[in-house]
Simulated scan of single mutants.
Amino acid sequence: MYVAVKGGERAIDNAHAWLAEERRGDPAVPDLSVAQIREQMALAVNRVMAEGSLYDPDLAALAIKQARGDLIEAIFLIRAYRTTLPRFGASHPVDTGAMACDRRVSATFKDAPGGQVLGPTFDYTHRLLDFKLAADGEAGQVAEAAPLQGPTPHIMGFLDREDLIQPEPAGAAIPPDLTREPLELPANRALRLQALTRADEGFTLGMAYSTQRGYARNHAFVAELRIGSVAVEMDIPELGFSIEIGEITLTECETVNQFQGSKTQPPQFTRGYGLVFGMSERKAISMALVDRALRWEELGEDNLGAPAQDAEFVLYHCDNIQATGFLEHIKLPHYVDFQSELELIRKLRREAAPLQEAAE
């Protein structure tokens, strides 16, 4: 029989108190400040901002501290907070061609105008533990390089000028706001990109890796990967013109893929695109690969049945907050549901018992 549980509120309060104690850890160890998390765990902060759809390093760092380092929980906190914020207007599309690049590399053109800038990257590290950090020392000090200033042309523009890459349509309609309206299929490319930019990094990486292993026939080159700050501008009705309201750091990736052509288009290259808050190059590259895989229908290519080509599969499963909510709800009380299942199994066993005895 189902019996109502008593004392639940008191147990929950105690669980919250214990959680706060566990979050703090040993009181003898200095408390971790929000500023320390923001400055020294920047990649985690960037992921929380990107998947939480809110650019605020201080709030993202606070969420990481509150969530005890559980980034999905921190993303959940940021999304929940975001829903409480009023919206005063919309900014102009950012001009990534005017990005002040801290990092800009290309795997397709060695001598790119403006040069290649390695920037802060793990690419050439030895992946060996640095025990100086455990001793509260610094591994090494180097002079900070100045970012590339002024317009830095996109490398894809060189292919554009030779008409070797599929042109992107201009003046596309503004897509629905995925943070305010639920996803609906079929989704155009702009809406798919919006979903991918806030998708779970691990899921997006797995989908991208599957395309490289042959599930979608999607061999890509990174035409350009750039990380830097861009200005955000917004129209002010009272002034009658737009002003710069701040700067944000973005990671942008453009991939180039072969395209065999169709009845109406000659053989050429096509693009994959990724744009993410902060320094998140793994996510941006993954996003670009998955974006290209999802374009099979609009390009008139064959659907090979690959998971990364299935828009419904990708877009409905890439959101870690939705996935976490559905997954973790099964650990909450389901006493009534289980009792009905239990009674059904008992009834079926009683009905089956005479048949089993007869068979023996």
Rank of each mutant, 00 (worst) to 15 (best):
G115E: 13
Y2I: 09
Q40L: 04
H334A: 15
A284T: 04
K331P: 00
L304Y: 12
A44T: 04
V94P: 07
Q166A: 14
L196T: 10
I330P: 05
E144P: 02
A358G: 03
E254I: 04
I321V: 15
R213N: 13
N188F: 10
Y81N: 08
A98I: 05
Q268M: 00
L159R: 08
K347R: 15
D56M: 05
F88H: 10
F131K: 10
M234Y: 01
V222R: 05
C253Y: 00
P30D: 01
P176H: 04
V276W: 00
A20K: 12
R104N: 12
F313V: 13
A17D: 14
R79E: 07
E138K: 01
D58E: 12
L344W: 11
H334E: 11
S340A: 15
L128C: 09
E73V: 02
R282F: 05
L342P: 00
P30E: 03
K263P: 02
A44N: 03
Q309H: 14
R79S: 04
E247A: 10
G25C: 06
E247G: 06
A190H: 11
G52R: 04
A17N: 08
P167V: 06
Y2G: 09
K132P: 00
F338V: 15
G157N: 13
Y273L: 05
N218P: 09
A306H: 12
E51F: 02
G261R: 00
Q149K: 08
Q265M: 03
D136L: 07
K65T: 07
C318I: 08
L148S: 12
P27A: 01
K6N: 12
V142D: 00
I245R: 02
L118K: 10
I243E: 15
L289F: 08
E73L: 09
E21M: 06
G115N: 15
G150F: 05
E238R: 03
L62K: 11
K347C: 07
R79P: 05
A288K: 01
L118A: 14
L205E: 05
V45H: 03
P147M: 08
L348V: 14
D26M: 03
D310N: 14
T204N: 10
R292G: 04
A358Q: 10
